[in-house]
Computed example of a mutant assay.
Amino acid sequence: MAAPSVRILDTNFYLHGEIDNYESLQFTRRFYRAGEFEMHIQIGKQHTDQLLQDRIIMVGNKPHKAGIIRYRQVSEDDNGIETLIIKGPTLGGILDQRVTMAVSYDRIRGPAETVLKHYVNNNLGNGTYATGIYSARQVPFFMVAPDLGRGKETPWQTRFEQLDAVNQEIAEFCDIGWQVALDILNKKWVYDVLPGRDLTTSQNIHPPVIFSHEFDNIQSQDYVDSWLQYKNIGYAGGAGEDEDRLIQIVGSGSGFDRRETFLDCSSAADALELTSMGEQALSEQKRIQTFNGLILSTGSFVYERDWDLGDRVTLQNKKWGLTMNSRVTEVKEIYEPASKLEIALGDEIPTITQFVKQLRSNVKRSD
């Protein structure tokens, strides 16, 4: 995997330089949420001085691989060599700059793509809470791609939540991805969804993609199958107090396999919405099944040609008795003297930070 060049742009799309002699670059793409990047380059190399706060880097002349510089660090080693380290989110990190504004709850029902684009447009584009008296919230170079109505039908509601968190929750619940890419010609950042393709062995429309030792295309494997947090029955509590509180049961399970939990959904407007909110909340306590591995460049399946982020592929490890049809949810491109490609399939293992955020969300719902 050849190391790509990195272009440096500003939000007006002016080119400030191009770098191809950095020491290392890691660029992580994610399906349900924004990715991130980190680059190391020695001070004094050409255009290093242009790697400034809020500048945009574009990797390999690929508009969907761009990030915002949000962190700069200069360090000096024992030999006096000074290195600049820059980090930041991919362009989707801009969603972290807004909350979901609403006088009352902003409620919508429709295909996943419609719901996602509604909230993004409302708070960053030219929707209700980004125009008129809220025009200061609009980002002039940001736009939402036309809505094609893709994804499963879902209702949603939100009020004063972080837009990026809402986006991720909807994307995970509906199993649909998204990205923000550069439109160089029209000088826009464009938000759009990523449905992904089914490349598993269980379909016969596309050539299947299989990662296994038999194909000599994967190594350094790590597999997790966790039921620790799993619940399959939820008692969703709506508005009201004590005996007058409306309760709806969601999920299924019986006997030893039944695992119950209470779900605070007090902001639900009616029984139908309470059921929908309960199903959404219960889905957050699902079985976690994830796989991480290092992809070997054998030529059997070429990244971004035969498979890409968001595609469903087949993983096989006969030694572990494992066959897994799952979505590629993360791709980390590492460009160093020994470049490599790491992938993650399946569910993301919750971090402590995400767990704390979920606790805060539950507290907010009960207020």
Rank of each mutant, 00 (worst) to 15 (best):
S135V: 14
I176W: 05
V115L: 06
E172M: 12
D164N: 03
D106E: 02
A102D: 03
N186W: 02
T154S: 11
L124C: 07
G151V: 15
V166W: 03
M101N: 12
R137S: 07
D147F: 02
D164Q: 03
A181E: 15
N122G: 06
Y129L: 12
G125Y: 09
E153V: 15
L148R: 13
Y191R: 11
L124A: 07
I176K: 02
L163P: 10
V115T: 14
Y119S: 00
V103N: 11
W178H: 08
Q157M: 06
V166Y: 06
R137V: 12
V139P: 14
R159P: 11
M101K: 10
Y191C: 02
W156N: 01
A102G: 10
E161A: 00
R150M: 01
F142Y: 04
I133R: 12
Q168Y: 15
A130E: 10
I184M: 08
Q162V: 14
T114M: 07
V180A: 02
V144W: 05
S135W: 04
Q157R: 02
S104Y: 02
G110I: 13
V180H: 05
A145W: 01
R150D: 00
A181H: 15
V144F: 09
T131M: 08
I108M: 06
G151F: 13
T158G: 04
G151S: 09
F173Y: 14
G132N: 13
D106R: 07
Q179V: 14
Y191D: 09
E161N: 06
M143R: 12
